[in-house]
Structures are given as C-alpha cells and as structure tokens.
Amino acid sequence: MRQTVRQAMTQQTFITAALTPEQPVPDGLITPDGRPASKRFDVYRNNVVVSLKEALEQGFPAVQSLVGPVFFAAMAGEYLRAHPPKHPVIALYGADFAEFIDNFAPARAIPYLADIARLEYALRQSYHAADSQPVTQSALSDPLLFTRAVRLAPAFAWLPSAYPVTAIHRLATGTCRDGKTVQGGAEDVVITRPAYDPIATAFPAGTGAVLDALASGEALGDAAELAPPRLDLTRFLTTLLSGGAIVAINEI
C-alpha cells in the first residue's frame, strides 16, 4: 500500500508543494516510523524557497534596487511558484523573469523594469558563457576586411530597449558616474566580455540590425550599411574589438 501511494505522487505534485507554503505535505512522504514527514518537509520547503529567492536577488540586483526589497521578495515569491527551475545550474535561474515582470500588474508603474531584468540576465549569461580567443590585431589589418564575415564570441550579446537601460542600471547598482539623473531614450545594448566581467555599452536604436546581419554571416561592409544614422561606426567597431567580440574572420 505504501509503495502504491508513493507512485501516485508525481514530480509536479512534489515541486508545487515544495514551492507553496499553503500546500499540504505530499502523500507518501513519511518518516522511518511511518508518520507524515511534515516537519522535515517544512524545513526542506523553506530552504528551497529561500535559496531561489536569494538566487533571484543575486541575479537581479538592479531590479531589486528599483522596487525595494519588500516588493522584490513578494514578486520573487510569485515568480518562483509559477516558474520552478528548469536548469540544474542555479546561477542561471530566472531566464523568463523579465517576461514574468511584463505581465506582473503591480510592476506596471515601472515600465522599464522588465528591460532591466533582460539586461541583467544577459550580463549573467555572458559571464557564464564559454571562453573564446579573440582575433589578433594583425587579422584586422586585412585590406579586404569589410568583405569578410566574422564569428562572434559566445559571451557577446545585444538587446534592444525603448529606455536608457544602461544608465538606469548603473544608477540602480550605484555605479553611475554621470550624476543622479538618467537621460536618453531608446537604445540597443551591446554586451562584451573583454576579461572576466561583462560590460554593457549603449548604442543608438537600430544598431542591433548590424549585429543580426553579422550573426547571420553577412560581410562586415554589408552589415555596416544597415547602421542607423547616429551610429559612430568607429566607436562601434572599437567596442567589438576591445571587448573580444570577434573570434574569427572568414571569407564569404
């Protein structure tokens, strides 16, 4: 009989109970003497919830700073119950936290909050991405460079936003060097990892079209034709090169 009850407890039942304090202890969880393991499961449940909340706090410090610890804890609790971990690496927990924030009604008063979460998760992915060897300086002196395709580093990423998220992120994390005000509008964020720590750099909206073209294998010159009018191509290419974003240059 005991074996039949244990088989009836699904993985989803266990996960739901572990993440929801008001849920009863799943049938089949018993102590060695056959009694329901309520106290032991409550301790386990508390440890799971605390660990996941801590992972979100560490992974999204700017989001927490913008909404405050009490609001963040409540939002994180709602999120973790609806989105239990799908990846064994806890450091990568929160992949869809931004999408959750998009639909979390109490957060609508801060319209850029989800984009800040996207930026923070992209920075974290870059940090944990595989190492790569950038191209040498001599490879960049090729007179036919702009007819070549490039391969981008695993740690390199980019994302668009309707808000000046790089400045907001710096202000929220206490690394802003431009005073205590945020100016600007839509931007495309380029993330490079020249050493160990990723760097987010803002470029004009539309810059992502250049990177989309490079990622799809188009020649550097053809991709540059897609640049928005306000893009400083010299600064853009310098950012890619100094950030180790280009790991190969190939003929088309």
Rank of each mutant, 00 (worst) to 15 (best):
Q133M: 09
M75Y: 04
H83W: 06
A74N: 15
L119Q: 02
M75H: 10
E120C: 01
A129I: 08
F97R: 05
L144Q: 15
F104L: 02
G77I: 09
M75I: 05
R81Q: 14
R151E: 13
Y163S: 03
S132H: 10
R151Y: 10
V150H: 07
A129T: 09
P84M: 09
P106L: 09
A149D: 08
P160H: 06
P88H: 14
A74T: 15
Y121K: 01
A76L: 12
Q133P: 06
A82F: 14
P84G: 11
G77D: 15
R81H: 12
A76E: 08
A95C: 12
A91H: 04
D142R: 06
I110K: 09
G94L: 01
P84L: 15
A107R: 02
W158T: 01
F72Q: 05
P143W: 03
L119S: 04
L152D: 05
R124A: 10
I101P: 05
D131W: 03
Q137P: 02
G77S: 15
V89N: 14
Y121T: 07
A130C: 00
A130F: 01
H128K: 02
A129C: 12
Q133N: 05
F146M: 05
R151N: 08
P143S: 03
W158K: 03
A162Q: 05
S132G: 13
A107L: 08
A129Q: 08
P164C: 06
I116E: 04
F100Q: 01
R81A: 14
L140A: 04
A130L: 09
V89Y: 13
A157Y: 03
L145T: 07
L123Y: 06
E78I: 13
F72W: 14
S141P: 00
P143V: 00
L144Y: 10
K86H: 14
